[in-house]
Nucleic acid binder design. Structure first.
Length: 312
DNA sequence: CGCTTTTGACCAGCGC
DNA sequence: GCGCTGGTCAAAAGCG
């Protein structure tokens, strides 16, 4: 995961120069500032450029620190996952029944950060092959939504038909049952329920594999799209009737990260890729600090361009 | 009118 | 055998 290197942490760079401009305004006569704002900018141009360079260097240092922190976090997370894989029995209740055992295993892994189900039983040799195959096709995704939003809808690009809803014992929020309705023969089912720990997180459990292509992919392919590569993560941007869309291909990673990929095999599923993309876009657009930073960056860019045009 | 959602009833597995 | 629980069915209601 090289997301940190892809993140632009320099969004606040322009905040300081703007503030510097305001401070300069206070030291000069207010009337002069109002009558000749641009002239003031010229006089402080040297100081501004120096400040920008200083902030830029500071930003690079912070980016490096952030990168190191994220690498340490990823390393720790991998070690934790590795430990869980090697000691699966430590989180299981051995006395519960086989059917309930599956649910118990799911519940035990019902934490943010473990984005998949990796249930492994001790008596695997006794189980039918079909059940094993079915279990291997169970995947889980976590969707952060508004806690007040009671609709258990997880947009993953496929068409789902709700066929039931049930209140379970271990969770006060109801569990919704969905079947894939895009193809009549598609056996995929989906269970959606809010997390017990965090009501703003919706847990979607997928069972089976789609025997058809993702409808949203067909739509995306039909529209004009252009591809680009951000670091090690290829992605593509496209426009559709629903608005601009950015797609990250999370299946392509560096060879040195094969271990990490093995720990999260379910991310290869196309519906999960779609889900992650939508979540990232949703999180970014909902974040007010991101909007503010983006606005500051854009306004700063305009200010810089104005100074350059004044210069010519 | 056809499709989707809602919701109570029903069924199967399991523990006691 | 009975009760509990999760999962599914199907009729009714809602919606475009």
């Amino acid at each position: 995961m090289e997301f940190t290197s892809l993140l632009n942490t320099s969004l606040n760079l322009n905040a300081r120069p703007l503030r510097l401009l305001d401070e300069s305004l206070e030291t000069t006569k207010v009337q002069e500032a109002e009558s000749n704002f641009i002239d003031l900018g010229r006089r402080n141009k040297g100081a501004l450029m120096e400040e920008i360079q200083r902030v830029d260097a500071e930003n690079k240092k912070l980016t490096e620190i952030l990168t190191v922190l994220y690498e340490n976090y990823t390393e720790l997370k991998n070690q934790l996952m590795d430990y869980k894989m090697k000691n699966p029995t430590s989180v299981e209740n051995k006395t519960i029944s086989r059917k309930r055992n599956i649910d118990a295993t799911k519940t035990s892994t019902n934490n943010i950060g473990s984005s998949e189900s990796s249930s492994s039983d001790e008596d695997t040799s006794k189980k039918p092959i079909e059940e094993e195959q079915l279990k291997s096709k169970i995947s889980r995704v976590y969707v952060r939504t508004e806690a007040s939003d009671s609709s258990l809808i997880v947009k993953d690009g496929y068409q789902w038909r709700k066929y039931g809803q049930k209140v379970t014992r271990d969770n006060p929020s109801p569990r919704a049952y969905f079947k894939c309705s895009y193809a009549p023969t598609c056996p995929v089912k989906k269970k959606v329920q809010r997390s017990v720990e965090d009501q703003s997180i919706v847990v979607a459990t997928y069972e089976g594999e789609h025997n058809h292509t993702n409808p949203s992919k067909l739509e995306a392919n039909s529209s004009s799209n252009r591809s680009m590569t951000l670091g090690n993560v290829p992605c593509s941007a496209s426009t559709s009737s629903l608005g601009p869309r950015i797609t990250l291909d999370l299946t392509k990673q560096k060879p040195s990260h094969q271990e990490t990929r093995n720990l999260r095999p379910k991310v290869d599923a196309p519906e999960l890729q779609q889900y992650f993309v939508e979540q990232m876009a949703s999180t970014l657009t909902k974040d007010p600090s991101f909007k503010a930073a983006l606005a500051a960056a854009i306004s700063g860019k305009f200010l810089q361009q104005n100074n350059q045009t004044e210069k010519w």
